[in-house]
Amino acid sequence: MGKHRRLGGYRLLDEIGRGSTAVVYLAMDPRGREVAVKELSPEVAGEPEAISRLAREMSAQARVRSEYVAGLIDGEITAERPYVVMQYVPGTPLNDLISAYGPLRGERLVRFARRLALALGDVHDAGVLHRDVAPGNVIVMGDRPTLIDFGIAHETGAEQITRRGMVVGTPAYLAPELIEGERATPASDVFSWASTVACAATGRPPFGRGSLHGVCFRILRGQADLDGVPEPLAGLLRTAFRRDPSGRPTARWLAGALAGALADGDRAATRRHGAPAA
Rank of each mutant, 00 (worst) to 15 (best):
W253E: 15
D149Q: 12
V85H: 05
R163W: 06
P42C: 06
W253V: 14
L212W: 05
V110E: 05
L237T: 04
A275N: 10
E47S: 10
S211K: 11
A263H: 13
A194H: 08
V190G: 09
G214D: 14
R243L: 06
R163D: 02
K38Y: 03
L116K: 10
P232M: 05
G2P: 09
L220W: 01
E15M: 12
D266S: 10
P145R: 05
A79K: 00
E180F: 00
A275T: 11
A60Y: 10
R272F: 00
V197F: 01
G32K: 03
F217I: 01
P176L: 02
V168Y: 06
T170M: 10
L236A: 02
R218K: 15
G169S: 06
R267Y: 11
G9A: 04
R108I: 00
R63L: 14
M28I: 00
L147W: 11
D143F: 06
R56I: 06
L40C: 05
R183V: 00
Q223V: 05
L54T: 07
E76Q: 13
R115Y: 11
L254C: 10
V128I: 11
G208A: 07
H213T: 13
F150W: 09
E107Q: 08
I98W: 05
D264M: 02
A268N: 08
A113Q: 03
R63Y: 11
A153E: 11
L220I: 05
R105E: 13
R5L: 04
R271W: 07
T250W: 07
V35A: 10
A60R: 09
T202V: 00
P206T: 03
Y68D: 04
A55E: 14
R243A: 13
A62Q: 15
E67V: 10
L13A: 08
P232C: 06
V123Q: 14
E15N: 12
L7C: 08
A79L: 01
E43I: 02
M58V: 15
P276L: 05
P48V: 01
G2H: 08
T196I: 04
K38I: 07
V197E: 03
F207H: 08
P103G: 04
